[in-house]
Design a protein around this nucleic acid. Structure first.
Lengths: 223, 223, 223, 223
DNA sequence: AATGAATGAGCATTCATTCAT
DNA sequence: CATGAATGAATGCTCATTCAT
């Protein structure tokens, strides 16, 4: 076998790690019912199985890292959108919330693996993880959530102190649930068609936009 | 081994089928991270493995049937609550909605396997089902949903025609999402404690009650 | 695949179990450096891998069962030999001991897998065993040893009470050690020839006969 | 990483080689069920994995070198003891043999890794060795054995010419066998206790002293 | 000489499902 | 109807060794 170029420099290593994540994401997108096998990931990025384990301790570790990246990007998008709106002088709540939600939902729509991964039961991804790795992930997620929660509170004055992050939590829960409703196995779609059960199977982005809007309105109302 | 008495009469068969579901539910409750094995279910109800397959085509079929029963009971509870309220002459929306939601969430709280199973539906249960069985399940669920959707519309006049069932759909999505957030593997709770990450990990019933209320208020608002 | 005849009757099951042991023994004889893989054992007796696990809980369990059979046969041979000698009226110690040792060593010579297996380090066979299975084995071995130890004491009057089983223990230890000295990997024999190192590498049976005889004489002397 | 100082001088190399053996011995002592991994050895002596392979062709080579050192020390002890006795004018066979055996067994008792390693030699260590390395080892061992065999013959006049080395060979075999009997996995000791099976599981040093004495007496008798 | 990134062979075990009895 | 023997697919991970740097 022609051996791979060695990733000696730190940058090269980072890049290689990223290529593993990339391959993992693509394979997972193909069949979101289960995590792809390590060997398939390795092959997909031209590495040997053992090499993958130089970069990740366990298979689940790969997908947690992936999930982490999605979360980060998602929050970034949200924070950025809010920053832009402020810079734009867009202060009408009526406009701001829909703009923010659109940004957030668009991201989910454009990165379906995110929701797939996130909605995968804990019992699948979070088993077989180093406590360190899992803790790190939770910690980052918590920090990001709180940071963005604060921003949301500034956006919606009616929201009591500390409710921002809770609203985000519920928003996330809602999108996860909607994803699961919307995500049918292809085989089932083929078998049953799109129409008969459309009440049970919403189109993700439309439903998410609308449902989250309802949730936010209700939250602002109650606050 | 001495063979079991044969279930010849329809009633006997129904009863045997029910005993399988019973056993499956109990075993699943013991460890809800994964579906119990067929052999364990068979033993738990005193049958041989092959016999279980006389009543269900696949293991997943057992749990879909179980899930179906939970849905039925859940909807029944909801419908009944609404009927009682009407009989009581409780017509203040302000009172009715909380009463209904309490009934619904209480059911979920008292039947944690329901949420667990429902949140597995997606990635685990539906991957190995006969089309017939799956279709049957979806169909029943659809009918129930529509029926209850109508009732909800009567309850909330502000809700436009056809929005009842959609609100239910979102309610279900929201509870599923909250369940997943609240349901940590024991190992992780032990490792990280209950406190540090409580923002990420709500208590199911409290959160569900509150979040669903927000959703319904928002929905009524928008309607 | 044409499926196997089913071993339903108890006798058939016993026979099938025996055929697994048979196959395991033969494969192990081919390369005594390591336990053969389960798949190779299964194939060698025309079974599927899973079927092997219907008869044994772990791979190591197969080899412990095998070892147990060898021990039983070995002790039987010894006990029988002593019984025959008594019946023959052979009472001269001078004759009896060599006859007994010949019987014992012949058995080892004719069943080389026995010594191979026995001399395999504990860390290999005794790991991955049910405690029950291991205990059962030890218990049987203990009983047999004591029984035969008593017989040896009757044979050698000079031996103090209770020394019979200890002499057997040392005899066993000695044969194990000699086996290890005598058992070179084929590759090494090929590479180095038989002659240069014959001082380090005895021929098993000759050495065992002689060394054990020395041990027994010394034991009788000391007793 | 900063590269290590290079061992250019022969002495430095010898020292580095020795430090590898040292580390290997210590790690093996910690868990004598299996040979430690190369990476753990490398780390333990502050080297990189590849560097270890500059000094030894295979992992087993490390442990064979270690085994060789144990053998050398063991024989040295024995030869020295015999020399001292002669210098002491201790000529009573009755006294000499026990003194010698005590020295030999004490060494084994104080260096349990020796027996552990020696009893692995057979099934584990020799399976992955360069012929050169193995030959070298055998050759050295042979020379030492012959040398010490001669010394034993001088000690025990009753021993025919050439029987000294054979007696040593049997002595070694006997100690190896006794070692294996005495060496139970901790898990098993914990599970079964020390008492019930003590007949099958001698205490190494006591048993070795006694059994070897019997062997030597028998050998002197027969000679 | 020293490093450490890359390689890839090797394997026990479970368990859903079938089907001969 | 009931049984339970037989099947066989499916896979993460370690670690000795190599060799480019």
């Amino acid at each position: 076998m022609s051996k791979l170029l060695r990733a000696v420099a730190d940058d090269d290593k980072k890049q290689r790690r990223q290529s593993i994540l990339q391959a993992a994401a693509e394979l997972f997108a193909e069949d979101s019912r289960q995590l792809p096998s390590v060997i398939s990931i390795a092959k997909a990025c031209g590495l040997a199985k053992g090499t993958v384990y130089l970069y990740f301790k366990t298979k689940e570790g790969i997908f947690l890292a992936l999930l982490s990246q999605y979360f980060q990007s998602w929050f970034e998008q949200g924070l950025q959108a809010m920053a832009v709106m402020q810079a734009d002088g867009c202060t009408a709540l009526k406009d701001q919330i829909p703009r923010l939600l659109t940004v957030l939902v668009d991201y989910l729509e454009n990165n379906p693996e995110f929701m797939q991964l996130a909605s995968m039961n804990h019992s699948i991804i979070e088993k077989n993880l180093d406590n360190d790795v899992a803790y790190q992930f939770k910690k980052e997620l918590l920090d990001l959530s709180i940071q963005m929660g604060n921003a949301v509170e500034q956006l919606i004055p009616a929201l009591p102190k500390g409710e921002g992050v809770l609203l985000l939590r519920r928003t996330y829960a809602l999108t996860i649930g909607i994803w699961q409703l919307s995500d049918w196995p292809d085989a089932m779609v083929d078998a049953f068609g799109e129409d008969e059960f459309q009440v049970l199977r919403p189109k993700f982005a439309d439903e998410a936009r609308l449902a989250v809007m309802q949730l936010w309105i209700g939250a602002a109302q109650l606050g």
